[in-house]
Amino acid sequence: MTEKSNGNRKLCIITSKGSLDMAYIPLILANSARMTGIDVELFFTFWGLDVITKKKMGGLNVATVGNPSMHPWFHIPTLLGAIPGMSAAASWMMRQEIDKLDFPPVPEFVQLVIDSGANVYGCKMSMDMMKLTKDDLVDEAEVLGAMEFMELSEGAQLLLV
């Protein structure tokens, strides 16, 4: 385990979404926190599990249906967003933009926050529901019940994404 800060500020982030755009929010926040010496616990639940699932994390997509905020690239009306290939195209564009900012792709970013000392947990209940086991998650992830996460997050600042 990487050495932690001496200060006691701690950030806990619950990630419940697994789309490409939503995956970056907890990762960027976790990374920024670790860079400045804040302890970080990341809890992934429901679709958020995709972000730390080995088979899924490299292929996250942007939702083009029911997403009114597709700018700055372009706006896709909901009906057009349903056309096959639209989500893949939007995801491709977003990956390009992310790369331009020198942000790593999701799998590399997850490894980066783990290497920086953030702890990563998969929600047991969601994993049971989605028939996932610990082996499906990134190697460093641990499986945790919501109750255990409550204990872990005591006194921490809590965020739901």
């Binding site: 050495e3 800060s5 200060g7 860079m35 400045t36 010496g37 000392g117």
Partner: peptide, 9 residues
Amino acid sequence: YKLFPGGPA
């Protein structure tokens, strides 16, 4: 992170 505990940035 080992070299600069307490936040390398």
